[in-house]
């Protein structure tokens, strides 16, 4: 279906395309992380390919491999009606550095998808405008979809903190203070308190 895309990629980028396959009818290209942004931009802009929609982006952790983390993007072209899967492998055995260029400038949906990949797999996207957790809360430690994150691990409950204490504005926080939300605990203002 998108053999054309694989051919064009190989012709244009040569060595940067590490391997390709078409298992189960899904055309896949594994690319060098250094060329990630350039390849994504090419796939989006090439008139014969026009992958104008990023369907999905996720990280897959292979703890036995080096590079350990695989970042997988699924692209779709609405005008050409074809698909491709682009993968890249990054990170050392301990995932001390696990960085990749952000493609938010190519597809706007990459904004949230990269935030999710960062949150769940711990991939740092260079150049992302607002890289913070999206599904978990800021104090969450670790990245749950890494294979070495124990599935049954519990993290401590958080104390309520104000926006100033958290040092973060517009961030996820407990919606009510301890004295809010319940009628018996609601703060009642008196004249003297106001003055």
């Amino acid at each position: 279906m998108s053999q054309l895309a694989l051919d064009r990629l190989k012709a244009t980028f040569g060595d940067a395309i590490l391997e390709t396959h078409s298992d189960f009818g899904d055309e896949t290209a594994v690319v060098r992380p250094e060329s990630w942004l350039a390849i994504c931009r090419f796939l989006r802009q090439d008139p014969a390919l026009q992958f104008d929609m990023m369907s999905d982006l996720c990280g897959v952790d292979y703890p036995d491999r080096v590079p350990r983390m695989e970042v997988v993007a699924h692209l779709y072209s609405l005008s050409r009606r074809h698909r491709i899967r682009v993968k890249t492998r990054i990170g050392d055995a301990e995932l001390g550095t696990c960085e990749l260029d952000s493609v938010t400038s190519v597809w706007r949906t990459a904004d949230w998808l990269e935030r999710e990949t960062y949150d769940m797999s711990g991939v740092l996207f260079r150049g992302h405008p607002d890289l913070r957790r999206i599904l978990m809360y800021p104090e969450f430690v670790g990245h749950p979809l890494r294979k070495d994150y124990p599935a049954q691990k519990a993290q401590p409950l958080l104390e309520y903190r104000t926006e100033e204490e958290a040092g973060l504005t517009l961030e996820k926080q407990a919606p009510f203070g301890p004295d809010e939300g319940m009628s018996f605990g609601r703060r009642t203002f008196t004249r003297s308190e106001e003055n």
Binding site: M120, L135, M136, P144, A151
Partner: peptide
């Protein structure tokens, strides 16, 4: 700022 995640149940991990 739209904030999601309040119904996160770790589907993929499960």
């Amino acid at each position: 700022d739209v904030q999601i995640g309040y119904l996160h149940r770790g589907f993929e991990k499960m």
